[in-house]
């Protein structure tokens, strides 16, 4: 029965070929666990997407209600503190994993020809992940979130020439308030997810197309 259904679908979509080219691709035989950080990051991204979608169900991005809505998630919704806890810790974990992944790519020289573009996309992904962290940090609207964002947006001000403009765009004006919270929310749940999805798509396509780089070996001296 199951094979009948999958056979029906596969005959019309050819999905199994696509899946096979993704899962059954050739990789160097001497890879090690250092080469799993990218997959770990992807896994954490999936966790963040799922938990984030469900957190938005009870969250209200307005200064009057943001803090209370999070208190509601933590105290009144079944498994609310679990879902938010996962989102909180996986957020930190994702930054750590992205950093380790970039470090391994750099140290192993995997960014070199023909994978330069994969590296550049990866750098953009790193920035987007930091953007997620920065915008998500404000959403609980507690003292820590508020003052961290005051400081964070003030930093933008120190950039020569454009700093003041960037600062105002970030806050949606001079003050950190309702407009800031709403635009941080929009960035966190709508704009950045679209950007990161597109970048992950390109990144993965390149990884599959170019295959994983061979780890450098002691015996293979560069002349």
């Amino acid at each position: 029965m199951a094979t009948k259904v999958t056979g029906f679908l596969d005959e019309r979509t050819g999905l199994s070929g696509l899946l096979a080219s993704f899962l059954n691709r050739k990789v160097p035989a001497n890879l090690n666990y250092l080469y799993t950080f990218g997959s770990a990051t992807l896994m954490l991204f999936t966790v963040q997407a799922i938990t984030g979608i469900f957190l938005s169900m009870y969250y209200s991005p307005s200064p009057d209600h943001a803090y209370d809505s999070i208190k509601y998630i933590m105290n009144d919704v079944a498994f609310g503190s679990l879902i938010r806890g996962i989102h909180h810790w996986a957020a930190s974990g994702m930054v750590v994993m992205v950093a380790l992944h970039a470090l391994r790519t750099f140290v192993m020289g995997s960014y070199k020809y023909p994978r330069e573009l994969t590296w550049v996309i990866g750098v953009l992904l790193f920035l987007v992940v930091l953007g997620f962290g920065f915008t998500g940090y404000l959403l609980p609207w507690d003292e820590k979130a508020y003052w961290a964002t005051v400081v964070g947006t003030n930093m933008a001000k120190t950039v020569p020439f454009v700093g003041d403009f960037v600062f105002k765009v970030m806050r949606g004006g001079e003050d950190l308030g309702a407009v800031t919270l709403a635009r941080f929310f929009t960035a966190h749940v709508l704009i950045l997810p679209v950007i990161i999805s597109a970048l992950i798509g390109i990144h993965l396509f390149l990884v599959v197309k170019l295959s994983i780089s061979e780890p450098p070996e002691r015996a293979k001296r560069v002349r």
């Binding site: 469900f54 498994f79 609310g80």
Partner: peptide, 9 residues
């Protein structure tokens, strides 16, 4: 947990 979370209210 996700199902419980969604239907709890």
């Amino acid at each position: 947990p996700i199902v419980g979370y969604t239907i709890s209210p």
